Simulated assay, not measured.
Amino acid sequence: MTPFLTLKDRRALITGGTSGAGAATVALFRDLGAQVLTTARKRPADLTGVAFVEADLTTTSGVRTVVDAAHRDFGGIDILVNVLGGSSAPSGGFAALTDEEWEKEFNLNFFPAVRLDRELIPGMIEQGSGVVIHVTSIQGRLPLPEATTGYASAKAALNTYSKGLSKEVSPKGVRVVRVSPGWIANPGANGLALRIAEEAGISYGAAIGVIMTSLGGIPLGRPAAPEEVADLIAFLASDRAASITGTEHIIDGGTVPVA
């Protein structure tokens, strides 16, 4: 019997694949039969069963390193999942964001996806098929003004770019979809709480409360697990989602109000 969902023999590049939702996605894609290439600035000790290239995707040279590895190791890519993202910007609102901080936010959360797409989508168009998944964030809709204006702006830009890209390449056989998580329950995604706690001189628990209040609460009562985000990404990358393109898929426990 054919399994409900398989990625057997698909060649996948997953950025940010060594922690959090990225690591969960790498593990799931591997288990579903995909050939997986992932990348980070440093190789983790426990990474097995997937190809890895050490690179800094906030630089054009790092992107080139990853693209060269994808062509060398796999001969091209069928699925590109841009998970890479995060923020190191200080709290303090808009006035705390210098030009350097703005550049950091966009160099991490926007330009790696744009540059990888530009290098790898032409090969997908040539083969007549491909899937691009951009992991954005509900912060694009619900920015936390005290701490995430730069990050949220970069993710909003990624959303808009993705919409335009989908209209251009979907008729050529390449699907483009977005996955927008809310708060994800893992240490790699909780850096914001740690930073708020340190800068405000409050406890970690109190900082979590600040974030929850800013978000307006999570109706489901809990954040998403990394594996739940990975499940959604895998479905959208599979043939089960063959007619889905140009859409945003929010996984946030009901945080974003809907009509």
Rank of each mutant, 00 (worst) to 15 (best):
M212R: 12
F235G: 01
A237F: 04
R222S: 11
W183S: 10
R222V: 08
A95D: 13
L84S: 08
I196L: 15
I125T: 06
P122L: 00
K172L: 15
L116S: 01
A230L: 07
P90Y: 07
E228W: 14
G164D: 12
E198G: 09
A259Y: 15
V63K: 00
A230Y: 09
G150I: 02
V81M: 08
T149V: 15
G17H: 09
D117R: 00
T247A: 15
D9P: 06
T38W: 08
F52C: 09
P3V: 08
V177C: 03
A193C: 14
F111H: 03
T2A: 15
F94Q: 11
A21W: 11
F235M: 07
V67E: 01
I250C: 04
G217E: 10
V114P: 07
A224E: 07
T247C: 14
P257H: 10
Q35G: 09
G22Q: 07
D239F: 03
P257L: 10
P112L: 03
L236W: 05
I196N: 03
A154C: 10
T160L: 15
G86V: 07
V50Q: 00
S203A: 05
G20Q: 08
W183C: 05
A96F: 08
F52R: 02
L108D: 01
T6K: 10
G17V: 03
A12F: 04
T245H: 05
G253F: 07
P3C: 08
R72N: 09
P171R: 11
I184H: 04
A89G: 01
F4T: 13
P112V: 03
D231P: 09
A113R: 01
G16T: 08
G150Y: 02
E103T: 12
T65A: 14
L144E: 09
Y151M: 00
G128A: 06
I208R: 12
A27F: 08
P171A: 12
L37R: 00
G86I: 05
A40M: 06
P219Y: 02
L84I: 15
A12M: 08
G217W: 06
D68F: 12
A157K: 04
G182P: 06
S129N: 11
H249A: 00
V83R: 11
V131I: 13
E227Y: 03
G128K: 09
L220F: 14
E100R: 13
A259S: 11
A234I: 06
K155H: 05
V26Q: 02
E228F: 13
A242R: 14
G150W: 07
Y151I: 01
